[in-house]
Design a protein around this nucleic acid. Structure first.
Lengths: 329, 329
DNA sequence: TTGAAAGCGCTAACAA
DNA sequence: TTGTTAGCGCTTTCAA
């Protein structure tokens, strides 16, 4: 493993010149450049990021904080981030927090210790206070999820509006007994989506029944199944369910089927996220599509701008209601 | 952002002493230690990994190479790797190659340039020659997929045996017209699983029919649907399908259902991988469970041993046939 | 157009 | 038990 010294020696130039060639500076005569390039080739030299990073006080690593990699919702966002990152010579450290403050802190330490240049947080359970403090000295962007008045830039969709449209769709096709399968309301998006649900009902003169609103601890299949069990046991059984996540909705689908009921004839189901699986179920799932890839690219661009020291503004992106079999007999 | 110099000054000691405290060496008197710790606290000091890494010629970063993050098969393996890595103070760079040599090379460069200490490769499409060359100077482990005589240590399961058991199960429950939905045979695992399929058939005196063997380009859901279309069009239609991936099997399930046929009454289906979603389908999917989490932890341990300069041996782990509704009416 | 030299922040060998 | 100092590999300022 040769270093820059040896290359310089081999080429008969100074290390400064080698560095100039390495960084494509045009203050090097082509004769010297060729000598250097030959030396590099001959010694099979690869510049060390370790030295460069220390010198430049940067790591060229970006942290992505997600609660779990098991939710496919994040996949496209990550791909979006990755596209931009790679094109700008950044690398991505994918960090699963399990919504656990201790694990979270391990990753925060990475930026405190300069192992990472910035963070894109997608964890709704993130400790906003810690994040705020960190944001004083480091580049941070919130993606999809955000703390209400954290002052940290975010890119997201209008959750209330999306939820409102989903429920309105159910009302339009004739439902009035609509259950909401929500996650914990400690999360902002959960509160926003509940608002949209309420707004749609109220706008159509439908009373909001507390017993129709079920909360789940996490956004997994099994939680959707469990929640659906409860819904099926409600005396005045709902004829439609709006779940705030496709994984929940798919769990609900499964539970409804297992009970010999039919979707959408007996119960219509709407999900949220448009994950790949939502098209593989039987019936396919009506859902809200977020512009995930775009959200990722924008978040990455915002973060990199921030790392460069530029000021960035929060953005709210459009969403789309995708109507499929689970709401159309 | 204070550095070690300033801490030393503040504490009235040398940088060496601060470094000793930082690294928990017990050659520091508790009086001095306390002075240093106070200084650290007062200055809000965080040691820079950049300096430490350069000095120690390490990055404490491990690369995981996967073809795509969209296949949930990798999730548990990654979690296993992560567990070990974090406990040993390593971080993980998740690298999606898209089975594209150029993208692959970007990531290989990371280890060439010391930005990463080693690689766990799970990409069946990886260029084995490049990998071999890289392995001369760097720590590399192959996980799940491996080059036959690359000389690079691997951890995997016995694919032929697993496949053999899956097909034998289908034979035992009365099938003799069994299709194989395989991926491209340029992949070793595809060849091995085909062998197991053939072995099971031959052992029971069932002729292997070429037209019953369908190849797909990728392991996505849609590819399973397409392949199933072909199988349904075979004149002497198979009564069972063994797919080498759950995603393919789920696509097959969907296609069979869409054609008004019943699983398993008309056609039985077996998958491979036991991804989470394989339990959410209707019917639930019979499949081969690989010990994914364990595979991940072992791969990580092997890699870290290798980074430390130890010699490591390849390992073959057990698998399990999980019988569910798609093969039991 | 090139080189000498300082320094990024840390660890560890050696000396005291 | 502590301090001095060299040096990990690189970039960049300054001078030539």
């Amino acid at each position: 493993m040769a270093n820059i010294q040896q290359v310089a020696k081999q080429a008969g130039v100074s290390v400064a010149t080698v560095s100039r060639v390495l960084n494509g500076q045009n203050t090097v005569s082509s004769k010297t450049r060729i000598k250097v390039e030959e030396a590099i080739h001959k010694l099979n030299y690869e510049p060390s990021m370790l030295g460069r990073n220390l010198r430049n006080s940067e790591s060229r690593i970006i942290l992505i904080l997600i609660p779990t990699i098991s939710n496919p919702f994040y996949l496209d966002i990550i791909k979006g981030i990755e596209n931009i990152a790679i094109s700008q010579n950044y690398n991505i450290l994918l960090c699963e927090t399990d919504s656990n403050p201790e694990k979270e802190n391990i990753y925060f330490d990475l930026v405190r210790k300069k192992m990472a240049d910035g963070i894109i947080s997608m964890d709704p359970a993130v400790n906003v206070d810690t994040l705020k403090k960190l944001a004083e000295n480091h580049a941070i962007i919130q993606c999809s999820e955000y703390g209400e008045d954290s002052g940290i830039p975010y890119v997201t969709i209008d959750n209330e509006e999306a939820s409102y449209r989903a429920v309105k769709h159910l009302i339009k096709i004739g439902h009035s007994k609509i259950a909401l399968m929500n996650s914990d309301e400690k999360y902002l998006y959960a509160r926003q989506r509940k608002k949209g649900y309420q707004k749609a009902l109220e706008e159509h003169g439908i009373a909001v029944k507390d017993e129709y609103i079920i909360h789940t601890q996490h956004l997994g299949f099994e939680y959707g199944q469990q929640a659906m069990k409860k819904i099926l046991n409600i005396e005045d059984r709902p004829t439609a369910v709006f779940a705030v996540s496709d994984l929940l909705a798919i769990g609900a689908l499964k539970e409804i089927n297992s009970n010999g009921l039919h979707v959408p004839n007996d119960i219509a189901v709407v999900g949220f996220d448009k994950i790949d699986f939502s098209n593989m179920t039987n019936p396919t799932l009506t859902t809200i599509a977020q512009p995930m890839h775009k959200m990722g690219t924008i978040a990455a661009k915002m973060l990199i701008d921030q790392i460069k020291g530029e000021k960035v503004e929060s953005i709210i992106l459009d969403h789309e209601l995708v109507i499929r079999e689970s709401t159309s007999g």
